[in-house]
Each structure stands twice: as structure tokens, then as C-alpha cells.
Amino acid sequence: MTELTQFPQALSIAGSDSGGGAGMQADLNTITARHVFATTVLVAITAQNTIGVQDSMALPPAMIDAQFASIAADLDIRACKTGMLADVPTVRAVVRNLKQYDLGPLTVDPVMIAKGGASLLTEDAVAVVRDELLPLATLVTPNLPEAEKLSGITIKTAQDMQDAADYFRGIGAQNVIIKGGHLTEEPVASDFVLLADGSSFWMTAPRVNTVRTHGTGDTLSACITAELAKGATMADAIRTGKAYVEAAIRDGIIVGHGHGPLNHWAYAEAGND
């Protein structure tokens, strides 16, 4: 590569959120805020706002292939992530291209349900994500409902979270974050991290009483992807991602009438880049 291509570059493989709070838009905002150049493979389109998802449409696999080929032919992608993948043909197109091109470490955010409750992954695609995509993952970042759906483990306790992380390591994911925010009876949100070397740690944060959490999972995985593109270790990238999301929720902005988006400027403004 020439000097012109050496600025850190990351790739978001996801669907569009027309309301701007989640999906590819959250990825772009986050990656850019972390001072990394963001590129995209768009796989689906949604008609969506802070209130809910009104409609969605997957793009043809041939168009997904063309986007991957175009990016791989020119850009120096150092890390990538997946978000909404819609259906079986889309998941398989993404898997096929991830096997074909070297796009750096892969973070899989197994997006299934929107904040408003709409399904973003068809039922028959869940097994394809589990069996074909997750074995390619450098990192997988499920929340509790996603972890339960993919693993078949009912998660009610801290030990259940650790068991789920072991499951994902067992099927091929190198590193795992089990996000514990859905254990709503706890006064703090706790995430369990299991790393490729077998070490593990917990990350905790006080809960913020707000409905402005649309795109939280996208933002976390995108921040981690950006940090990996800059050369951070996995543990440091994960800790930075957690801190960034905490700040983006805590220093909220008012947009829309439902589950509002995060403040993607918050962490940079705090001088913690």
C-alpha cells in the first residue's frame, strides 16, 4: 500500500436506519468519532425512526458482493464489523465475502430485534449466523436475549453469562462479550468478557434512567472495531468501547419521541480520545 492508504480504516457491514440512531448510521458516527475512516457494505434498508421500524428490505446478494469487491480492490481495511443481516441469503453473502477478503479482525454484533420490538433477522437465519458466521468472529457481542437465542442457554445469573460465553468460544468465536444490560433487577449493568487467551473480566456501570439508548449495541461494537483498526489490543478496545457507550448514554441528546439515539460526540468532547 502507498502512504495515501495508511490512515486507519474500518468497515461496517450492516443495514441502514433511516432515523439515524442505530445500524450503519450509528456505526459511521462512532467510527468517525474515534478518528478512524469509516467504509460500508450496505446489506438492507429500513424505514425506521425512534418509535419503531415501519418497513425493511434486504439488498440483492449480487450488490453485496459488488460492494465487498469494490472496497477490497482499493482500501486498506484493518477491522470490520457486522450488524443487521436480515435473512439467510444476506448472511450467506456476507460469510462468503468475509472468507474471500482479508478485512482484519471481525466483530459480530448479532442484531436480531430493534429497540421497538421489530425483528431484524428472520427466524431461519439465526442458525446460519450461529453455524456459519460466528465461527469467523474475532469477537462476538450478544446481549442477553441474543445470547439465549443463539446458545439455547437461559441466562438469569452471572454464572449463566459465563456459561454462554464458554458456548460461543466453543463454536469458534475467539473473544466474547455477554452484555448484561437486560438483567434489569440489578442496580448496575454488568458485562462479562472472555478473551481468546482464556482470561476474563467483568465490566460494570451504573444504570442511567433514560429511554435514549437506541443503537447502544451498534455503538459498542463499532467503537471496538475502530480501536482495533488503530491497533489496540482486544482488551483495551473492549474497555474503550464500554467507556465510550457509558459517556454517550450519560451525556444524552434529545432527538425523536421514542427510543432516542446516543450522543456520539460525548466521549470526544470529554477529552478522553
Rank of each mutant, 00 (worst) to 15 (best):
V129T: 02
I13D: 05
H257D: 15
M234R: 01
V53N: 01
K99C: 14
V111H: 04
A114G: 08
A10E: 02
G198P: 05
A173G: 01
M234G: 01
D27E: 08
A196N: 14
T204V: 04
T154N: 09
D166L: 14
V255P: 04
Q6K: 12
V91D: 03
V91K: 03
T40Y: 07
L183R: 04
F192Y: 14
E269N: 14
V36L: 10
D218P: 03
R92H: 11
G180Y: 07
D76N: 15
L42V: 12
P60L: 15
G19V: 10
Y101Q: 04
T90V: 11
T204M: 11
K230Q: 12
L28G: 08
T154I: 13
L120K: 00
G217R: 01
A268M: 07
F192N: 01
D218C: 15
K179Y: 11
R78K: 03
T233G: 15
A44P: 08
Y167F: 15
T204A: 15
L194S: 13
M203C: 12
A232T: 06
G260M: 14
R96W: 02
G271K: 04
E123V: 09
A235Q: 12
V193I: 14
I51M: 14
A10M: 00
D251R: 05
I253P: 08
G260K: 03
A229D: 05
R78F: 06
L59I: 13
L103A: 10
L4W: 12
S12W: 01
G260V: 14
S199D: 11
L220F: 15
D76M: 11
A232R: 01
D197G: 14
S12E: 08
G180L: 06
A14S: 09
A72K: 00
V95C: 05
V176P: 12
D131G: 00
V43I: 13
G217K: 03
Q25N: 11
K81W: 08
T240N: 06
C223R: 00
A270P: 02
Y244V: 13
R34C: 14
H35K: 10
A226Q: 02
I45K: 04
C80F: 05
I254L: 12
D197E: 09
M84C: 11
N143K: 00
T157S: 11
L136H: 04
R239E: 11
I64R: 00
Q25C: 06
P110Y: 05
L134S: 05
V255W: 09
K156A: 13
R130K: 00
V193L: 06
A22W: 04
Q174Y: 12
L103K: 04
L139Q: 02
P89F: 07
T2R: 05
G252A: 15
C223E: 08
T240F: 13
F37Y: 15
R92V: 10
A205M: 04
Q67N: 07
D55T: 08
I51A: 15
E186N: 09
L194H: 10
L98P: 03
D87P: 07
N97P: 06
I238Q: 02
N97Q: 13
S199G: 09
Y244F: 15
E3K: 07
A73S: 15
R212N: 13
I178E: 10
E148N: 04
A114R: 00
L59G: 02
D273K: 09
T90N: 00
S151M: 07
I113Y: 09
I224F: 08
D76C: 13
A114L: 08
T90C: 08
